[in-house]
Design a protein around this nucleic acid. Structure first.
Lengths: 354, 354
DNA sequence: CTCATCAAGGTAACCGGTGTCATGTACTGT
DNA sequence: ACAGTACATGACACCGGTTACCTTGATGAG
């Protein structure tokens, strides 16, 4: 129960002290440079020597000091995640994905939420990345869309991988999420159910994701010969409240839509509320489709049909691309780069009445 | 749209290169050691000298390299957050709190989810903390309750702050969350509404939080002369599914409880489902109170009454304690250490029928 | 007036690795 | 048998700071 217990007196030996590269070198009777070569997989080490050194390293549980190594490399072993996405589920899943990609490597994840509106935004990010000499950064939307930030990162020569709904960059600096396919799937799902009066509540269209989801959606409607009339096309803010408001307006129209596709689950939850307020039932009077397939989707009643993006995998892929830059110097350049959303049908969507 | 733009040829000057302590020393015509003294607020620098150096530092926008500094200090400027809490909202809020405490300092946050069941758990954590020479770690529940981990941290002499529902350690290594007060508030709320048959679904009681919430709850019931009968006292797993199951059992009892207090919101959502399945209305037939006040609480219908813990502030306080260790060598030792949950009454709790 | 004391700052080694280049060996080819 | 080359390794400076220790001039006590 005591926080800082006195440490037992250390006996003469290097008790408690982690071994250094010098210790290894001494034991292996080689220079520390050779040990360094083994650590860094240099090809210029005799197999025999390598094995001897490796054995000692393993035995002593030696691991090089990332700070010292970083200092010499002029680059740290930290990967940053810079984000402004307010959805906790999204953030946590992506973090986990990145961490999974780093598993077994000596990289660590440093996180950095930010606000693109802040006047210090660019200066802060520059200072952060430059000071920490980040090995690379993962940029989920919407920071991935900020060209000013990209310019800063290019200037200070910091590798990055952008996660976005369209290809904004070279393949090895991108994970493309094809949000428009998700929109299309939503449209297909609803038209197949027989809906014809279908509305959309999009996120702020200055977010590419919102734009792409909407684009795919209208495209999907077009496949069935349908259009998205102006009065059925509302832009909201990706928030619950804005969803309530937009949905209330839609549900007051005559004739009202029999289905609503929302740019995310938060706004879909807003539709639930607006529908209750208007005395309408889901999916009896209106079908609802969300986007994200967040935890909420399976807690709401009725269970929300939603489009799911493999956020964890996106993070993992992005980090893997970053890590690949050293591992095998641009070896298999074209790792998997694209991800496609999938519709998860639940209870909130059904054929329209009559 | 190109990821790695060629950098403009650097002119003779140190274009693009960050200044080092040597640059500052040269310009100020002092030794680098004196610059170092200024950086570290050593008292042995003449005011005049200090000002001259500070001015140059500011002008050049110099910031010492954390790796080099860390290497010499034998300690990094990274603060770790080790967690196993699966609730994204919780994780993100706490992260944000920690980051807010670090704002303006040169610390960065490294996150590390873990699984206490994993056989490598302790070894992994030791390697992580020791390799990175973490400045300190923040331990939210339930890792904060793991005495083996604490022992490891003590051994490698890594400072930590534990966030837990009871005082497990010295005040400067703790943030105490008094979960039992939350349980008590829930009990008071329900008894005041007139309920007498009140049930509880707790989290796994090997989690202190679950145990404390339950303890406070029974204590609150006792204040009103009530007991928690055995059949009204269920232990579940903090998950939605386990909540459904436990609630179904409770609602099948005769007479059934008129109110259920849940150890978290996830399980409360489970009660909603079980109630619907049983054809019971909330709060008409059963009142429900959750714990966490997660985002879900205000998306569910009816809005969930829940007990709220200031998670962001807990993270902030914990990190502040860590940082205070250097800032002003154990100056005001007794920073604020305790936090009290608050009940947020919404629609899911009302007076019992009749 | 001398010596101890202290503030203010400098010097050099060091933290734990890596880069550069020199050196020594063992094969090649002729 | 001998230069030429490729491989394997070591010596040493360096990354950008800090610690430990030393010097210097000024001040005060005896």
């Amino acid at each position: 129960m005591i926080s800082r217990k006195p440490r037992p007196d250390s006996e003469g030996e290097r008790r408690g002290k982690r071994p250094t590269i010098n210790d290894i070198a001494r034991l292996a009777q080689v220079s520390k440079k050779t040990v360094s070569r083994v650590i860094n997989d240099s090809p210029f080490v005799r197999e025999e020597t390598r094995e001897k050194i490796s054995a000692i390293i393993k035995e002593l549980g030696f691991a090089p000091d990332p700070q010292a190594r970083g200092l010499a490399f002029r680059r740290s072993f930290l990967i940053g995640m810079i984000y402004d996405n307010p959805t906790p589920q999204y953030v946590v899943n992506m973090q986990q994905g990145i961490l999974d990609a780093m598993k077994g490597t000596s990289f660590e994840l440093v996180i950095r939420p930010c606000n693109r509106q802040d006047p210090h935004f660019l200066a802060d990010m520059r200072a952060f990345v430059e000071r920490q000499k980040l090995f690379g950064v993962v940029l989920p939307p919407s920071v991935s869309e900020d060209e000013r930030l990209i310019q800063v990162l290019d200037e200070i020569d910091c590798p990055y991988v952008r996660i976005a709904s369209i290809a904004l960059d070279e393949p090895d600096a991108m994970v493309v999420t094809h949000d428009h396919v998700g929109g299309m799937e939503a449209a297909r799902h609803l038209t197949r159910l027989g809906h014809t009066r279908i509305a959309h509540i999009s996120g702020p269209t200055l977010f590419r994701s919102a734009h792409e989801r909407r684009r795919g959606f209208t495209q999907g409607l077009a496949e069935a010969g349908l259009k998205l009339p102006k009065e059925f096309d509302r832009e909201a803010a990706y928030t619950f409240e804005s969803g309530v408001e937009a949905a209330a307006a839609l549900l007051a129209l005559k004739p009202r839509p029999t289905a609503i596709f929302c740019g995310n689950d938060e706004m879909a939850a807003g539709v639930y509320k607006a529908a209750r307020d208007a005395g309408l039932s889901i999916p009896g009077d209106v079908s609802v489709v969300g986007f994200d397939d967040s935890a909420m989707a399976s807690r709401l009643y009725p269970l929300l049909t939603s489009v799911k993006l493999p956020i964890h995998d996106m993070g993992e892929m992005a980090a893997a691309k970053l890590i690949a830059r050293t591992r095998e110097r641009r070896a298999h350049v074209q790792e998997k780069t694209e991800v496609v959303p999938e519709l998860v049908a639940r209870e909130s969507s059904a054929a329209p009445k009559g």
